[in-house]
Amino acid sequence: MGITVIQIGGLYMLYMIGSFIQQLLHIPIPGSMIGMLLLFLLLMTGIVKEKWISRGANMLLSHLTLLFIPATVGVMDYVELFSGRGIWSIVIVIVSTMMVMLFAGFIGQWAQTREQKRVREVKGA
């Protein structure tokens, strides 16, 4: 438990560093995202070892849902936005989601089928 808390503290520090960089450079990218990219680089270069953060990171990620429940509860203050025109926003979100799903799915399908065909040709030759 203690280790997990310390590791979460470490992740929090990276988040703070990310936010600091964002404010310093005035870039419109979330500080949390900068922190994530930073951690990814640190892991890839071996400066930070996976086990230094894995317990804290897994704790946060497996309960990610709990962390944004307070945010989604906030919708109670915006109920009037969904009356009238606002209701369309839900339809828009669903349609747009299906478009992304199809497009990304097709590209993935195409790439993997092509790869498999190539492997088969190489083997056949």
Binding site: L11, Y12, Y15, G31, G35, M36, L38, G56, N58, L60
Partner: peptide
């Protein structure tokens, strides 16, 4: 909500 920031950082794992 305070934990959301470090949770995004954790996505690097």
């Amino acid at each position: 909500v305070h934990l959301l920031g470090p949770a995004v950082v954790a996505l690097a794992l």
